[in-house]
Design a protein around this nucleic acid. Structure first.
Length: 230
DNA sequence: AAGAAAAACAACCGCCGACTG
DNA sequence: GCAGTCGGCGGTTGTTTTTCT
């Protein structure tokens, strides 16, 4: 039946389809996308299900516009890796390859084709937007840093009492709601993300060969330093 | 306020490499 | 070794939203 032409639904996903897919992934986890349609009762093919989950439904996705820092990282990494969007996306937690690809296309790909006048207008507009975003971000960052520091110190205190951070899932769940996800690797005590998104982003730039290899020590050190900004 | 243009977002398609029987 | 299947990736297109004139 599934081979019949026209069996698979196309076009925008409905809320009900999203719900079914989320339920399915909750129960069975990611992967085996070919069986998803059958098990979840969806008339969507494997690729469609995977794409919808990866680009839209995953809980760890970051919503909202690309920040100036992220933009800079995209430019840096694109200069280094070219159109390897998934590779670039790995350095930007919460962003998908599709998102980055779209962003690159709309902002940079046709830059060479614009007239000088157009590009001046474009730059002025981007600058205006950038300045606004920076202001917003600074305000948020000030609040967030203070909050994060308190909570991180509290967590350190608690972990000292317990002896060690034993299981990264527990830690992740504990602090998911209050700060950017921190993933602790059992064997190496490695932090996968950091206190604020900007820290990991910059760490990604500084350690391009292994963007996830940030020690807790480095993380704590980062807390004390001023943010690089442009 | 309205239409046009630009930007952002969502989704599909084809190709390719890894895996498996 | 080979064919089939699956999942991932990058390119592209269509639609919606936002911004500009």
């Amino acid at each position: 039946m599934e081979d019949q032409v026209g069996f698979w639904r196309k076009g925008p996903w409905t809320a009900e389809e999203d719900r079914l897919l989320i339920e399915h992934v909750k129960l069975h986890g990611e992967g085996r996308w070919n069986s998803v349609s059958r098990l979840a009762g969806l008339r969507r093919n494997a690729k469609s299900c995977r794409l919808r989950w990866v680009n839209y439904l995953r809980p760890d996705l970051k919503r909202g516009r690309i920040t100036p820092n992220e933009e800079r990282i995209i430019m840096e990494l694109h200069a280094r890796w070219g159109n390897r969007w998934s590779t670039i996306a790995r350095s930007l937690p919460g962003r998908t390859d599709n998102e980055i690809k779209n962003y690159w296309r709309t902002h940079f790909k046709n830059k060479g084709k614009t007239t000088s006048e157009d590009s001046i207008k474009l730059k002025a507009r981007l600058l205006k937007r950038k300045m606004f975003q920076q202001e917003q971000q600074k305000l948020l960052q000030l609040e967030k840093n203070e909050e994060d520091m308190k909570k991180f110190l509290l967590m350190l205190e608690e972990s000292d009492n317990k002896g060690a951070w034993r299981h990264h899932d527990v830690v992740h769940e504990d602090i998911r709601g209050m700060m950017s996800p921190i993933m602790f690797n059992n064997s190496q005590h490695v932090v996968e993300s950091t206190i604020s998104d900007d820290f990991v982003l910059w760490d990604g730039l500084w350690n391009l060969e292994d963007v996830h290899d940030v020690t807790t020590k480095g993380c704590v050190q980062n807390l004390g330093m001023s943010m690089p900004y442009f």
